[in-house]
Design a binder for these strands. Structure first.
Lengths: 270, 270
DNA sequence: GTTGTCCTATTGTCCGACAATCCGACCGAG
DNA sequence: CTCGGTCGGATTGTCGGACAATAGGACAAC
């Protein structure tokens, strides 16, 4: 019973046709390419669908690989290939030091890192990211101003305080700046924007470290902006929040210019 | 030579410690969890890094699985698991009907679909997505107004025309609306925003179809807004573009309300 | 030039195996 | 009766080896 359901046959390629339509949305394709999904994809899709439809919920443990192999009537290796895909998609993960895989919701960090790969490989530059921040961050701040809770304020204050207190060359300073943005996102109560923001922050982080160290006045300006923004949140004043966040983000660009980093520097990994 | 580099040994788990710091950023960790990366992760990371560092470029064909297995000194199955991860990440793919894998840049659609999974599983609602659109789309339109080329205008006009001409129950109408947004993104010349937009559009598409069919005046209003936006782009007038896009997006929400779709409807797949 | 044939490299899938480890059950000491 | 060892089964990570089906090319036949 080997080779049970190997790749289904497929007809000869439509060489001419595909060449023609390679240019611009060409004429009638007449035939669609016959679909041939390897088993590992079908297995992965099957599980994926059960997760997306909530048949498998966040926290559920998956059956063992052997069990899955039996159910799908494929070999364990095939199941494993499928699991690796779901793992990368963030749909399943292994709690540290556990054996079985559990269903999980893709964490922001995972999604952001995927986005970041894309940005890097598409030669996105600092200005591009900065522009996106200019669009998103001020509005997030405004939303946060109307929705923040006391807990949000406390957390922001704490992080801002920690940043102010951090010694000069401390590499954690960057993390604290990132945390500030992250908390602000949380206070906006909008997961979509949080997800988008996170990618930007990640993409910027490496060069931010560089910038903070090189521009002496950067720490002071960042600190001031944070204080103003927190004040605006405290007053539930979205316009103030937006205004100061705008300034804050603009400052980043100025910082980069002062640091001698050209705006069209491509984003890098680490 | 079996089990050559199986999982490295690891000390007993720090049950107490991990429980303690599970709460909030607890005290000094003193010890970091010992890292144990399975071989398939290390292989995947190794290849990933070569791609991100441009040692392997877009379009390059990867060595055969057997060859990779030999180079990494692991079994072919292990290589395959690594490849499946890279495949899902969009870093490599197989051209339809080809045998070898080629390096590729993650396409917007791939990234967006990952984002969408996250949105669905985090119970993101229509308002959340709408809010994000309200933040992003008007600014994208404004950017597009200053940067659009004649080609952009032509493409937009063509899609808008096609939408106006599409028959009443045509399911392709939704795609045309999506295309309009996509082209606008392209005209903004900012990949970052394009990537973010795409996710929103995808998340909204299913229910959009629903809405267009149920609200008679929707088509007319969409068509009008598109015309106004195109006019603003033609005049290179960012303020007009922003204004009309704002209206346009606001209209979407009104449409949903008219269609009787509650704003806190969770986003779904399909 | 197109079509048919043959060969080789490579993928998709499977079988079977084993060490390391996790997990829960069991058990003796305080 | 709780707490810290011990033991065996279940499960993962990895490996060696195998084979059918296909992609891609070389080459002969029409």
């Amino acid at each position: 019973m080997n080779k049970r359901n190997g790749p289904p046959p497929r007809p000869a390629r439509r060489a001419a046709a595909s060449a023609a339509q390679a240019e611009e949305g060409a004429a009638a394709p007449l035939f669609d390419p016959v679909e041939r999904e390897p088993a590992y994809i079908r297995v992965s899709s099957a599980i994926e669908q059960k997760i997306l439809s909530r048949t498998l919920r966040d926290g559920d443990v998956l059956p063992s690989e052997t069990e899955l192999a039996q159910q799908f009537r494929v070999h364990r290796s095939t199941v494993r290939e499928a699991l690796r895909q779901l793992e990368r998609a963030g749909l399943i993960q292994r709690p540290p030091g556990a054996k079985r895989m559990v269903v999980s919701r893709p964490q922001a960090a995972k999604v952001a890192s995927g986005m970041r790969h894309a940005l890097v490989l598409h030669d996105v530059t600092f200005v591009d990211v900065w522009e996106a921040m200019m669009v998103i961050e001020p509005e997030v701040a405004a939303l946060a101003a109307t929705r923040r809770t006391q807990a949000d304020l406390d957390a922001l204050l704490q992080v801002s305080e920690a940043f102010r207190a951090s010694p000069k060359g401390d590499p954690r300073a960057v993390d604290l700046v990132a945390s500030f943005f992250e908390l602000l996102g949380a206070a906006s109560r909008n997961q979509v924007l949080v997800l988008a923001k996170q990618s930007l922050a990640e993409a910027l982080a490496p060069s931010l470290a560089n910038m903070i160290d090189r521009v002496p006045q950067a720490r002071q300006r960042i600190s001031d902006a944070q204080r103003r923004i927190i004040a605006a949140l405290k007053d539930k004043n979205p316009d103030e929040a937006r205004k100061w966040m705008s300034k804050h983000v603009r400052d980043f660009r100025r910082g980069y210019e002062l640091a001698g980093i050209p705006p069209d520097t491509p984003i890098t990994m680490d």
